[in-house]
Structures are given as structure tokens and as C-alpha cells.
Amino acid sequence: MSRFRILNDKGVDAFRNYLKDSAPSGEPIPRHLLNDDSFSKPFNHIIYLEFAREFNSKLELGSYLCETFDSANLSRQVSIRNRNFWASIVLFYFDQFCPVSDDGTRDVKMEAEDKVERYPKYIPRLNSGFGEESLRGRRHLALTPYLIYDYNKDTTHKADVLLSGKIYSFGDDVEQTAGRIEVISNRNLIGLIRMLYWDDKNERLLRGYSTKSRPGNLNRLVADLRNQMKLTTDWYSTSSQEIYDALPHEYNFWKDKKAH
């Protein structure tokens, strides 16, 4: 293991150019950027990341990053503002964040409409404005699992319901959930999500949980219903079971599915 280095702004630009011009055709990852003083520098916290480490799920990734940062005394307050740091982590493990398909290409996710950052899954998007850097991390493949795990690391489930699945796959549902601090910080709500949508036997989410046309889907719960309920209820002080018992009929499908 070698001491982790982070990209400078020029390095981030070079990484972005790679995402745009070379990555889709499966060309080699420009990891040399992390060793070249023109494009990177040592990080001001001493961190060692295992290059050969493989992550089978977002939960494994979130757990590894949390433990590694804790060991290095790198607080969330410091890491969460550093765009270049998170871009560097993705570059470091890019083979896993954007693997090569059987046909030799990579499926590079791009947000064509976003004028601020077209590759927010790989390079965190800065909040558009002036002043200290502030990241909008809910789409970022490394930052989001880290945040969700960090909030739930003291629970038994460790937000497995939100962190299941491969590290390169990021459904709209997780994005919607992870972008809401009122969701990822509310353990009762995460417990409720597990009660409704988690398949304990197979350790994965039930099929159809995020289908927009299906009543009681995850987005309906964390967006529509939660926004409505927060006017009159305090889900932070309500147990998962109590919220579950008070859900409208729309969610009976999921209750019945779990019961059978």
C-alpha cells in the first residue's frame, strides 16, 4: 500500500477528459495522474487504500471507507468538502466503479443536462455558487455510500437496505433517498424501509420496490408520504413499527408480500 494522493484541479480536469473521450471505449485508466506531481499531490491526511481490495456491495465500500478514514483521523467534516479527494477515490478504484463490459467498452454515466458537472457519479458536483466548496454528493458513487454508512454504522443493519447492490449501480431510488439528510439520518425510517422492502432471506431488495407506477414504492414513501407526514408527525421519535402500523392502504401490497 502507498500513501494516498489526491488529484489537483488540473488532475480532475484530466480525469474528466478521460471520462469523456477515452473511458467509453475501454481505454486504460489514467492512474498515473495520482502519481504525477503535475496532476496530484499527497493528501494532507495520511491514508492508505488497498489497491487490490474488491467491494462486492456499496455497504462493503462504505464500511471500508469509514474504517479507513477513522483510522486516519479524517473526519467527515473535512472529507465531505473536498471534491478532488472523492474524485481521486473513484479514479483509484475506477475498474470497479466503471467496469469493462464483455464487448470491451465501459458504460460511463453522464448527466448531459448538468452544466456544472457532467460526471457527478465520478466527480462530485460542487454546489453552484461562491464561497467555500460545498458538494452535492447524492449522485456520487463513493461519497454517497460513505455518508449513508457513516450515519448508520452503529445500527445492526448498517443501512443494508440502501447499500445493497454493486458499487457501480446507482438507481434513482438510492439517489432520491441518499440526497435527503432527513432520510439517511433517521434510523426509524431506514428500519421502516427494511420492514417493507428488504428480502431477509436473499439479502436484497424486493423486486419492484422502486417501480414508479407501483403504489407504495420507495420514492412515494421517502418523498411524497414523508413530506406530507412531516407536517403533523415526527418520524424521528416514532419507532419503525409505529410508522409501519400507521401507513396508508397503499403500502398493504408490501406488507402482504413480506408476510408471505
Binding site: N127, S128, F130, G131
Partner: peptide, 23 residues
Amino acid sequence: YRDIGERPWMLEVHETIEYPKII
């Protein structure tokens, strides 16, 4: 207020800020 090097002040405003700030 914050350590901003030798810059005397700066405006801080972005999409999700609660209140804009003079730093």
C-alpha cells in the same frame, strides 16, 4: 469568519445554503 488565506473577505452563496454569508 474563517481562515481564507490572505483574502480579506468573500461572499458565500450556493443553491442549498440556508442564508448567504459574508465570510
